[in-house]
Design a protein around this nucleic acid. Sequence first.
DNA 1: TTGTGCCTTACGGAATTCCGTAAGGTTTTG
DNA 2: CAAAACCTTACGGAATTCCGTAAGGCACAA
Lengths: 221, 221
Amino acid sequence: MFTKVLVSEDMDDISKGVHASLSELRITNIHQVQYCDDAYLKIKKAILDENPYQLLITDLSFSTDHREQRFPTGEHLVKTLKKQNSNLKIIVYSVEDRLQKVRLLMKTHGIDAYVCKSRRGLTELTEAIRTVFKNENYLSPQVAQALGQKADLEITDFDIELLKQLSNGLSQDEISAYLKKRNMTPSSLSSIEKRLNKLRIQFKASNAIHLVAIVKDLGLI
Amino acid sequence: MFTKVLVSEDMDDISKGVHASLSELRITNIHQVQYCDDAYLKIKKAILDENPYQLLITDLSFSTDHREQRFPTGEHLVKTLKKQNSNLKIIVYSVEDRLQKVRLLMKTHGIDAYVCKSRRGLTELTEAIRTVFKNENYLSPQVAQALGQKADLEITDFDIELLKQLSNGLSQDEISAYLKKRNMTPSSLSSIEKRLNKLRIQFKASNAIHLVAIVKDLGLI
DNA sequence: TTGTGCCTTACGGAATTCCGTAAGGTTTTG
DNA sequence: CAAAACCTTACGGAATTCCGTAAGGCACAA
């Protein structure tokens, strides 16, 4: 079994639960951090010390505070880590259950397991750790279909953000300004129009109002 | 207690429940119809026979089928009946819980009681029958405020229809055509604009998209 | 390296929505 | 009855959305 594990999770209580589960697996060398940046530094440091972590368990979303972060989300972190092909295994443990997102993490970023936080979350996490240790991948049942062939609809985080702002009453112009202010890209009015147009086609909506009504019904926002 | 009662309700199971409640009140002369038109005819006939109904319990919405109806809803029925001031008492028993609607039925059309279909619906209906028999009015607790002074927000059926069509993707122009085809008034583009503008102000929405998002969240459509 | 494809951005015109003003008709009120 | 209030409709202009076209940048592959 793994002997040295890092947990990156900003919620104390959850972090404690993960810690307990790890202990039950007889893993004693457990470290925890509350920022992805700290996780990155710790991992790098451990490699330099020639005593690297074997497994990282990380959340995706971290509440933001005053501290400016290089890795604002777990996704940024795992993307960077997996590019530097070390032997580090990564398990993402998050409430997010969009297939699109899970597929991206597994296929593109190459994480080793994805576990949804839910009632059975910790049980599944234990299972995931065992599976990953055997060099296999693990997916929570509710997102197991994520690796299915059909790349169903491509709804990105950006799309969701767009739809949310739209339903909040912002005009496309205002959304553009909003994105620019946050240094998010794309942010041009033209791009926003283009994306919304694509979404309208995808959802067979006849206009923006219809589109918002549809995605609200689907619970997408 | 009442001795002769008519129940107008198109859902079999509910109708059965009402029948049971009436029986418990020792009312034996109970007739049931599934169309408002039938209710009207039966009531008229009974008057001619000099053995009129004393109480009508009616739903508001009736599923439409091929048969063309003079009274498509319970509202049409009670409106007509109450205009012909007979001694007939009327209790409306419906899922509708919009205060505006209840107020209209009570104040303008002059029904004697309004009971909301809900978990306690039948209990309240029994209570309503007893109360109405004493020549008093009855209102389900959840809509009891309907008679309160403040004529809060005026959301009419027309508004709801407008919002529904809007969320279905019709443009204002198309809604206008839609209304004209159904001989509903108002139907001009100008009127539709005006109404939607009023709704936007009422709900503090910054545009039509926002408006639809808000009323969907409120469950109004 | 060059070509191909994809993405972001810009631009322009048509369609639609937004908003104020106003005329004509009906209902309410004094 | 007449004034006031309200409703429906029309119109015009500004703002926004909708939609096609096109240029420039970047990544991937031949």
